[in-house]
Measured scan of single mutants.
Amino acid sequence: DCSRLFDNDLPDGWEERRTASGRIQYLNHITRTTQWERPTRPASEYSSP
């Protein structure tokens, strides 16, 4: 389970979450994917897998 964190500095379409182990990951709501690196572009600029 991940708990949500609120971060207004993220590009549109992204959400920051913390894993059960405390690591931060980023959820792309457009492609429904996650990544460990902080995003720098809006989620819509990433392609679906």
Rank of each mutant, 00 (worst) to 15 (best):
D1S: 00
C2P: 12
C2Q: 13
C2R: 05
C2W: 03
C2S: 10
S3T: 15
S3H: 11
S3L: 10
S3G: 12
S3C: 08
R4S: 13
R4N: 15
R4Q: 11
L5G: 10
L5K: 11
L5Y: 07
L5H: 11
L5R: 10
F6N: 12
F6E: 15
F6D: 14
F6H: 15
D7M: 06
D7N: 11
D7S: 06
D7V: 10
D7G: 10
D7H: 03
N8L: 07
N8T: 14
N8P: 12
N8H: 03
D9G: 10
D9S: 14
D9R: 13
D9N: 14
D9V: 11
L10K: 02
L10Q: 01
L10T: 03
L10V: 05
L10N: 01
L10R: 01
P11F: 00
P11M: 12
P11H: 02
D12H: 13
D12M: 04
D12L: 11
D12W: 05
D12K: 15
D12F: 09
G13L: 00
G13F: 00
G13K: 02
G13R: 01
G13C: 01
W14D: 01
W14E: 02
W14H: 06
W14K: 03
W14I: 03
E15K: 03
E15M: 07
E16P: 11
E16Q: 09
E16N: 02
E16W: 07
E16S: 10
E16K: 14
R17F: 08
R17N: 12
R17D: 06
R17A: 08
R18T: 08
R18E: 11
R18P: 11
R18Q: 05
T19R: 03
T19W: 02
A20P: 10
A20W: 04
A20N: 13
S21T: 14
S21A: 15
S21R: 09
G22V: 00
G22K: 01
G22T: 02
G22S: 05
G22F: 09
G22H: 00
G22I: 00
G22D: 08
G22A: 03
R23L: 06
R23N: 04
R23S: 10
R23T: 14
R23A: 08
R23W: 04
R23K: 11
I24L: 09
I24N: 04
I24G: 02
I24Y: 02
Q25D: 03
Q25S: 06
Q25I: 15
Y26D: 04
Y26Q: 02
Y26F: 09
L27P: 01
L27T: 12
L27Q: 02
L27N: 12
L27W: 12
N28A: 01
N28H: 06
N28T: 00
H29R: 15
H29F: 07
H29T: 15
H29Q: 13
I30R: 06
I30A: 07
T31A: 11
T31L: 08
R32N: 12
R32I: 01
R32M: 15
T33Q: 15
T33A: 14
T33C: 15
T33F: 13
T33E: 14
T33H: 13
T33W: 10
T34G: 05
T34P: 05
T34D: 01
T34V: 08
T34M: 04
Q35L: 06
Q35F: 12
Q35V: 10
Q35T: 08
W36M: 13
W36L: 10
W36C: 10
E37P: 01
E37H: 04
P39T: 01
P39S: 02
T40P: 09
T40G: 12
T40A: 14
P42H: 02
P42K: 12
P42Q: 08
A43W: 07
A43F: 01
A43P: 10
A43D: 09
A43L: 07
S44D: 13
S44Y: 09
S44M: 14
S44C: 13
E45I: 04
Y46D: 12
Y46S: 15
S47N: 07
S47L: 09
S47W: 05
S47I: 06
S48C: 11
S48E: 10
S48D: 13
P49A: 12
